[in-house]
Measured scan of single mutants.
Amino acid sequence: MSGNGNAAATAEENSPKMRVIRVGTRKSQLARIQTDSVVATLKASYPGLQFEIIAMSTTGDKILDTALSKIGEKSLFTKELEHALEKNEVDLVVHSLKDLPTVLPPGFTIGAICKRENPHDAVVFHPKFVGKTLETLPEKSVVGTSSLRRAAQLQRKFPHLEFRSIRGNLNTRLRKLDEQQEFSAIILATAGLQRMGWHNRVGQILHPEECMYAVGQGALGVEVRAKDQDILDLVGVLHDPETLLRCIAERAFLRHLEGGCSVPVAVHTAMKDGQLYLTGGVWSLDGSDSIQETMQATIHVPAQHEDGPEDDPQLVGITARNIPRGPQLAAQNLGISLANLLLSKGAKNILDVARQLNDAH
């Protein structure tokens, strides 16, 4: 009898209710805020589980004197976190989706994509230029951005401005803007500013005609071990179906173009009346040469937790077992079709030249 009692006690200790789920994140304040929001949602869904947040620095956090596009290494903000995932030191990792490459290392998958916040870019102005827009900034004003995508589009749109690289986390960039006289304004992701509670610093939100956004911008991705079915089931509740389908289309477009950090590629997606609209573009580094096109596809946005595919093969690095396969494939095909259209119009040449120029500098 006593033996059975011990077995029952052991089973209770090993039951999922007692389990601590370890969540990996970057150390920056924004990353911690984003991770806290994901953990809060998981806690609400699984009140019996405990969650421990483990923060670590990544290569991208450490190399702050070089433009991201020049470092010449993929997975700048993800490699150390993936290493911890691989060694079973954490069970899942919360990322900004735009930091996750469209091809993940073997053994990993994006197990959830959370509801997207505003994906557009924002302009934050130096205190002396508050009330201005990019259009009304004085001639030769210097605007800071760490992104080739932003610089290429904005140089084309605002030729009277000069664009220079600015690195560091959000706090560091804002301090550089406010305390030094080098920059009249800087460009940042609206979602990051909003998550930090800095709505009052948003001086201008850039519309798609001015600057399309990065693939996955404004959404959070939760990376897990691809074979860890328990954790895949656990994080599945975080999937937002519309965000998922938009981001599958965007990531398929980028992957098929073979774009990345070192080339200016941008997108804009919208879901309306059962249609998914995808606009994508590529630019030369100075913005003088560009190709942009829009395509659409009829896609039914499923309700969360309709029964999805059981075999769960990944699409552009994403596993969404609780979302039907048909809409996911339709979104992926839309991204591939748009990429093929741009490639047929000469996108590869623009991107190759951009890559060579970026590598040469």
Rank of each mutant, 00 (worst) to 15 (best):
V20R: 12
I21T: 09
I21M: 13
I21E: 01
I21Q: 01
R22W: 15
V23I: 04
V23R: 01
V23M: 12
T25R: 08
K27I: 10
Q29R: 13
I33A: 14
I33F: 06
Q34G: 07
Q34Y: 03
T35V: 09
D36E: 11
S37T: 14
S37M: 14
V38N: 04
V39S: 08
V39C: 10
V39G: 07
V39F: 07
A40R: 07
T41R: 11
K43G: 09
S45H: 08
S45G: 07
S45I: 15
Y46L: 08
Q50P: 15
Q50E: 15
Q50L: 13
F51I: 12
F51S: 06
F51E: 04
E52Q: 01
E52C: 13
I53N: 06
I53Q: 08
I54C: 03
A55F: 15
M56T: 12
S57D: 15
S57E: 06
T58D: 04
T59M: 12
G60K: 01
D61K: 05
I63W: 08
I63Q: 06
D65M: 04
L68R: 12
L68T: 06
L68V: 12
S69P: 12
S69M: 14
K70C: 08
I71V: 11
G72D: 07
E73L: 06
K74E: 01
T78D: 06
T78S: 08
L81N: 01
E82P: 01
E82Y: 04
H83A: 12
H83S: 12
A84N: 07
L85C: 11
L85H: 01
E86A: 11
E86I: 13
K87E: 10
K87G: 07
K87S: 13
E89I: 13
E89T: 10
V90Q: 05
D91W: 01
L92T: 08
L92V: 07
L92R: 01
L92D: 01
V93S: 04
V93K: 01
V93F: 06
H95F: 12
S96T: 01
K98W: 01
D99P: 05
D99Y: 01
L100K: 01
P101F: 06
T102Y: 15
P106I: 10
G107V: 09
F108W: 14
F108M: 01
I110S: 01
A112V: 07
A112M: 01
I113M: 01
C114F: 08
K115Q: 11
K115T: 12
R116Y: 04
R116H: 04
R116P: 04
E117N: 06
E117Q: 09
N118V: 12
P119Y: 09
P119S: 10
P119L: 03
H120W: 13
D121M: 01
V123W: 01
V124Y: 01
F125H: 04
F125N: 08
H126L: 08
H126F: 08
P127N: 01
K128E: 15
K128V: 07
F129K: 04
F129H: 11
F129L: 12
F129A: 07
K132Y: 11
T133A: 07
T136M: 14
T136Y: 11
P138W: 05
P138H: 09
P138K: 10
P138C: 10
K140Y: 09
S141Y: 08
S141A: 13
G144K: 08
T145Q: 04
S146Y: 06
S147Y: 01
L148M: 14
L148F: 14
R149N: 01
R150N: 01
A151W: 11
A151T: 08
A151S: 10
A152L: 13
Q153P: 11
L154A: 06
L154R: 04
L154E: 01
Q155D: 06
Q155I: 15
Q155A: 14
Q155V: 10
Q155P: 10
R156K: 12
K157V: 10
K157F: 10
F158E: 04
P159L: 10
P159Q: 10
P159H: 13
H160V: 05
L161I: 09
L161V: 07
E162G: 09
S165F: 07
I166D: 01
I166Q: 06
I166C: 12
R167T: 12
G168M: 01
G168C: 01
N169Q: 05
N169I: 04
L170C: 08
L170G: 12
L170S: 07
N171F: 04
R173P: 01
R173A: 01
R173Q: 01
L174S: 06
R175Q: 13
K176L: 12
L177S: 01
L177D: 04
D178L: 10
Q180H: 12
Q181R: 13
S184I: 11
A185V: 09
I187F: 09
I187H: 01
L188W: 01
T190Q: 15
A191Q: 01
G192R: 01
G192V: 07
Q194K: 13
Q194D: 10
M196R: 06
G197V: 06
G197Y: 07
G197C: 14
H199G: 09
R201I: 15
V202Y: 08
G203F: 01
G203L: 01
G203S: 15
G203P: 01
I205A: 08
L206W: 04
H207L: 11
H207I: 07
H207F: 08
E209Y: 14
E209I: 01
E210Y: 05
E210R: 13
E210N: 13
E210K: 01
E210W: 15
E210C: 15
M212Y: 01
Y213G: 09
Y213R: 01
V215I: 04
G216A: 04
Q217R: 01
G218M: 01
G218V: 05
G218Q: 01
A219T: 06
L220M: 13
L220C: 09
L220S: 06
V222A: 10
V222N: 01
E223I: 03
E223K: 01
R225Y: 09
R225T: 07
K227L: 14
K227Y: 15
D228N: 13
Q229R: 12
Q229I: 05
Q229F: 13
Q229M: 12
D230E: 13
D230F: 01
L232H: 07
L232A: 08
V235P: 01
L238H: 01
H239S: 12
D240Q: 14
E242S: 04
E242T: 08
L244E: 01
L245H: 09
R246E: 01
R246I: 06
R251Q: 01
H256Q: 05
H256N: 05
E258D: 15
C261W: 08
C261K: 01
C261E: 01
V263M: 06
P264V: 01
P264S: 15
H268L: 09
A270D: 12
M271W: 06
M271E: 15
M271C: 06
M271Y: 15
K272E: 08
K272C: 06
D273F: 01
G274L: 09
Q275R: 14
Q275P: 08
L276N: 01
L276K: 01
Y277V: 04
Y277F: 14
T279I: 13
T279C: 01
G280C: 01
G280D: 04
G281E: 15
G281Y: 01
V282I: 06
V282Y: 03
W283Y: 13
W283T: 05
S284P: 01
D286Y: 04
D286A: 05
G287L: 05
S288L: 13
S288Q: 14
D289C: 04
S290P: 05
S290G: 12
E293H: 13
E293K: 11
T294Q: 01
M295T: 06
M295A: 12
M295Y: 15
Q296D: 04
A297W: 11
I299H: 09
H300N: 12
H300L: 12
H300R: 05
H300E: 12
V301A: 12
P302Y: 08
A303D: 15
A303S: 10
H305A: 01
E306D: 07
E306H: 12
G308M: 04
P309K: 13
P309S: 10
E310D: 06
P313R: 13
Q314N: 14
Q314T: 10
L315V: 03
L315P: 09
L315S: 15
V316M: 01
I318N: 06
I318T: 07
I318E: 05
T319H: 15
A320C: 06
N322E: 13
N322C: 15
I323N: 09
I323C: 11
R325L: 15
R325I: 15
G326Y: 12
G326C: 13
G326V: 10
N333K: 14
L334K: 01
L334W: 08
G335Y: 01
I336D: 01
S337T: 14
S337E: 05
N340M: 15
N340W: 15
L343F: 10
L343S: 06
S344R: 15
K345Q: 05
G346E: 15
G346V: 07
K348I: 15
N349H: 05
N349T: 12
I350A: 05
I350N: 06
L351P: 09
L351W: 05
L351A: 01
L351E: 14
V353M: 14
V353Q: 15
L357S: 15
N358G: 04
D359Q: 05
D359S: 03
A360I: 05
A360N: 01
